[in-house]
Computed example of a mutant assay.
Amino acid sequence: MEENKAVESVKDAAESAKDAVESAVKNVGDSANKVGESAKKALHNVVGDVIPSQPPLAPQSDAHQLKSRLEWGEPAFTILDVRDRTIYNEGHIMGSMPMPINELVDRATPTLAKSRDIYVYGGNDEETSQAAQALRSAGFHHVSVLQGGLAAWKAVGGPTEGIVES
């Protein structure tokens, strides 16, 4: 009987120790989560104060706005030239991607995020507007027509490249 009491006492002590360990593990985990959340909030506050969030992209932009974004090194936008590839090769906005209007949606859909800021320009205002509308219809949320296209870009001193431009 004494032996049974001793065994029961050891079992109770073991169970109590197990409960204490489980409780300690839970408390440490909860504390770690709280510290992690606090760190995330602190980082967000610092980054939020240093790097302001971008205003929504307007349906139309002028060359000054785009040049300003480039000069400030703002991330996460793409410039699409929807003119014919031969014309693109002659001269285009430095860093723009060639996507002829007849291939635009098929090429943009698998390569660009739907939430990415996209500036579009073509050979004329009608072509540019058609390209922007095609992208919007394909589900791209932030598409802006670059008013005046390449000519406006050159007028503000924006960098260009290509066979004729060099």
Rank of each mutant, 00 (worst) to 15 (best):
M1G: 14
M1S: 14
E3G: 02
E3H: 06
E3L: 11
V7M: 10
E8T: 11
K11W: 05
K11I: 08
D12L: 15
A13I: 00
A14F: 12
A14Q: 13
A14E: 11
E15G: 10
A17M: 09
D19T: 11
A20P: 00
S23C: 08
S23T: 13
S23R: 15
V28A: 14
G29H: 04
S31D: 07
S31K: 09
S31Q: 09
E37Q: 10
A39T: 11
A39F: 04
V47I: 15
D49L: 09
V50S: 10
P52E: 09
Q54T: 07
P56L: 08
P56T: 10
L57F: 08
A58S: 13
P59H: 04
P59S: 06
P59T: 06
S61C: 07
A63Y: 06
A63S: 06
H64N: 14
H64W: 07
H64V: 14
S68Y: 10
S68E: 13
S68Q: 13
S68D: 13
R69K: 10
R69I: 01
L70Y: 00
L70N: 03
L70H: 01
E71Y: 03
W72F: 12
W72P: 00
A76E: 12
A76N: 15
F77M: 12
F77H: 11
T78M: 11
I79F: 03
V82N: 04
R83V: 05
R83T: 07
R83H: 03
D84S: 04
D84E: 12
D84C: 03
T86V: 10
I87T: 15
I87C: 00
Y88P: 00
Y88K: 01
Y88E: 02
Y88A: 01
N89L: 12
N89I: 06
N89C: 09
G91F: 02
G91H: 00
G91V: 07
H92W: 01
I93F: 05
M94Q: 15
M94P: 00
M94V: 09
G95P: 00
G95V: 04
M97Q: 12
M99P: 01
P100C: 11
N102A: 12
L104S: 05
L104Q: 03
D106K: 14
R107S: 14
R107T: 12
R107L: 15
A108Q: 02
A108N: 02
A108L: 06
T109E: 12
T109A: 11
L112Q: 03
K114F: 10
K114A: 11
R116I: 10
D117T: 02
G122H: 04
G123W: 02
D125P: 13
D125H: 14
D125K: 14
E127R: 09
T128L: 05
T128I: 02
T128E: 10
S129F: 05
Q130Y: 01
A131C: 06
A131S: 08
A131Q: 09
A132V: 13
Q133V: 14
L135R: 05
S137E: 15
G139Q: 01
G139P: 09
H141Q: 15
S144H: 08
V145E: 10
V145T: 08
L146P: 00
G148L: 05
G149E: 03
L150I: 10
A151D: 15
W153V: 07
A155P: 00
G158N: 05
T160H: 01
E165W: 00
E165M: 08
E165K: 07
